[in-house]
């Protein structure tokens, strides 16, 4: 408590502490980037993603053979599959194809499914969440009950239903994964926005006479978006695993020779006892790709958390 005498004794202007701190000014984004660079988890994750994306993009140059080329079928004997050699780095699969080439091309498929299903799911989910979070009230209630219904349908069942309706295709898989992700993004953004709407800076913006749209788009939404970005990277990891799962079940398309990590697992099943490495390669690829996005997502979460900022 300060008495009037004390109050009068101090000079008001000049600032309480000197502002002249030597460090350069920095926004939230550069601050987050700096912390990401210092986090080994982020570096490992980012490296894995870089490798994954690089392999997917440059697959035709990396892969020594076509993924569908089965000209080595004659070398395959039941129960004995040629292992790694100078010509075939990871050996030959039961159908006489080069495993390494299939693995490389499989990255394309995984990346494509992951990115497309994430883009569709996140866009629709964010739109729904924005609607509920911006308006609140009965709009929020109605929209969120619909989202709850979506959430209650098991993803796998939904994927099978979509495949039954649209036929087994890549599109079906992407739609199925996207739809499963919609309620996750919608709920996440809506919850975050509702929390931010109660923040003092929103009250301050209202009292300054800033329009409702201005408050939502310039203040509430940007401040609510961090968890969505984090969820996006984590979702990408899940989408890769889900895509592999759906492909494993044979829901991803009618062409059995298409190079897919999930399908490679299916193909490896027949030789699981004699050549378990055939299942190991695609399994490892799935894990590493998903791990990359998970690590990046987790470190993004830490880097973007304002509470952890120094």
């Amino acid at each position: 408590m300060s008495t009037p005498e004390q109050v009068a004794a101090t000079r008001p202007t000049g600032g309480d502490e000197a502002i002249g701190s030597p460090r350069p000014t920095r926004g939230l984004r550069s601050d987050a980037l700096r912390r990401l660079r210092r986090n080994p988890m982020a570096v490992v994750g980012f490296t894995l993603i870089l490798i994954f994306v690089g392999v997917a993009v440059f697959a035709p140059w990396i892969a020594p053979y076509s993924p569908k080329d089965n000209s080595w079928l004659s070398e395959v004997r039941p129960g004995a599959y040629p292992g790694p050699s100078a010509e075939h780095w990871l050996g030959i699969d039961p159908l006489g194809r080069d495993v390494f080439s299939r693995l490389v091309y499989g990255a394309r498929q995984s990346l494509l499914i992951g990115v497309v299903s994430l883009a569709v799911g996140a866009t629709v989910g964010v739109g729904i969440g924005l609607l509920a979070g911006a308006f609140g009230g009965w709009v929020d209630t109605v929209v969120m009950r619909l989202v709850d219904i979506m959430l209650s349908v098991p993803g796998l069942l939904f994927a099978i239903a979509i495949a039954a309706m649209l036929g087994q295709s890549l599109t079906s898989v992407m739609i199925a994964i996207a739809v499963v992700n919609i309620p996750i993004f919608a709920r996440l953004l809506r919850g975050e926005m509702l929390g931010q709407r109660a923040a003092d800076y929103v009250l301050a913006a209202r009292s300054l006479g800033i329009s409702r749209a201005g408050i939502v788009f310039r203040h509430v939404l940007p401040n609510s978006f961090t968890p969505v970005i984090v969820q996006g990277t984590l979702t990408l990891a899940l989408a890769i695993v889900e895509a592999a799962g759906l492909a494993f079940l044979g829901l991803s398309g009618s062409d059995p020779s298409a190079p897919e990590w999930g399908r490679m697992l299916t193909d490896a099943q027949v030789a699981l006892t004699s050549a378990p490495q055939l299942a190991l390669y695609p399994g490892l690829a799935i894990v590493l790709a998903a791990l990359g996005f998970t690590l990046l997502g987790e470190s993004l979460r830490e880097a973007l958390d304002p509470k952890l900022r120094r």
Binding site: D200, Y201, L203, A204, G209, I210, G214, P222, N223
Partner: peptide, 25 residues
């Protein structure tokens, strides 16, 4: 407001948060 940290949007720099009301009006 009571809490100056909470009442300032953390993503706005001072220039932006002082200009915004002028633009809005």
């Amino acid at each position: 407001f009571q809490d100056p940290m909470a009442s300032l949007d953390p993503r706005q720099n001072v220039e932006s948060l002082l200009t915004e009301p002028l633009r809005a009006h």
